[in-house]
């Protein structure tokens, strides 16, 4: 897996295909949802090929179901591997969660219990997947609305142990950490300070819907101030991390996302000025 700092990217969405190809906007890299391109052909693959010629791509999956007790879906993994061979992404990610049970796909990122059993289960499966794909995976923290009574550790303790056991890295969704922190009443900085910066490969920034009593991780709003603040606090000590804006619904015009991306750049430049000057990244 490449460790390089890619800069500031966007999630590639179909609504922006034409703008990205015709206008070549100032975006350092794009992240694709892998499953959207695991089709035989047609428009998505056609546009991706053209965009790939101009931008680095990372692949982000939603259906690996790495935490499920179902058998690994090797048909899916073979298709994912084939796509990776065609796209040649900088790296590939999925989520630390389960999505399938008994062969049924929830199409949701369901939270794992933070237990030793989960750790052992994930460790085995992550090794199997990495061996099959022939590359390291990175895994994203999911937002959650519940925690389990039989949890044996905090989420950040769970991640720290997993990083040490699996030699995998994390995609930190700062919004997801903020959402879970509000929903479960913990300090997001406690979370962040337990994860070594070298374990974090990439950062997602996104928005949510705040209902006062709880937050739903909708990824359909601009990045709100508390998430920007948390991002700034994290990267002040983490060093340069490839960062992107992830919008999954209510997709705005590309220009609107570029403004948000510039905001991330400004925060990053302030935090990483010295590092970037010395490493010329």
């Amino acid at each position: 897996m490449s460790d390089k700092f890619l800069g500031f990217g966007l999630g590639l969405r179909t609504q922006h295909f034409a703008s990205v190809i015709n206008d070549k906007p100032k975006v350092d890299w794009f992240e694709i949802i892998s499953e959207n391109y695991m089709v035989a052909g047609g428009k998505p693959r056609y546009y991706l090929e053209q965009i790939r010629a101009n931008y680095p791509i990372v692949m982000h999956g939603v259906s690996m179901s790495i935490g499920s007790t179902d058998p690994l879906n090797f048909k899916y993994l073979a298709e994912l591997k084939l796509l990776a061979e065609q796209v040649q992404p900088e790296w590939m990610s999925d989520h630390l969660c389960f999505t399938t049970v008994g062969g049924i796909n929830s199409h949701d990122l369901l939270p794992m219990p933070y237990t030793q059993e989960s750790l052992d289960h994930l460790t085995t499966r992550i090794h199997q997947v990495q061996d099959f794909l022939g590359r390291k995976m990175i895994f994203e923290n999911v937002s959650s609305y519940l925690t389990y009574q039989h949890d044996e550790m905090q989420e950040w303790e769970f991640l720290a142990q997993l990083a040490q056991q699996c030699d995998c890295k994390f995609l930190f969704d700062i919004n997801n950490i903020y959402v879970s922190a509000r929903n479960h009443n913990f300090d997001p900085l406690d979370y962040l300070k337990h994860i070594k910066p070298e374990w974090v490969q990439q950062i997602h920034l996104a928005g949510h819907s705040d209902f006062g009593t709880h937050i739903i991780d909708t990824h359909d709003h601009p990045v709100p101030n508390p998430v920007w603040q948390l991002y700034a606090e994290y990267i002040a000590t983490s060093g340069p991390k490839s960062t992107m804006i992830e919008r999954d619904d209510n997709i705005p015009e590309l220009n609107e996302l570029l403004v948000e991306l510039d905001q991330a750049r400004t925060i990053g430049a302030k935090a990483w000025q010295k590092t970037l000057e010395t490493t010329h990244v």
């Binding site: 499920s68 049970v101 008994g102 049924i104 519940l146 925690t147 009574q149 039989h150």
Partner: peptide, 25 residues
Amino acid sequence: QQEFMSLLQTNDRHIELRVIQQGLL
């Protein structure tokens, strides 16, 4: 995980017993 899927598919509420009660929700 089976209890979670039963919630999603058949509205079996057993998983509520597994959840930590906290906060306003």
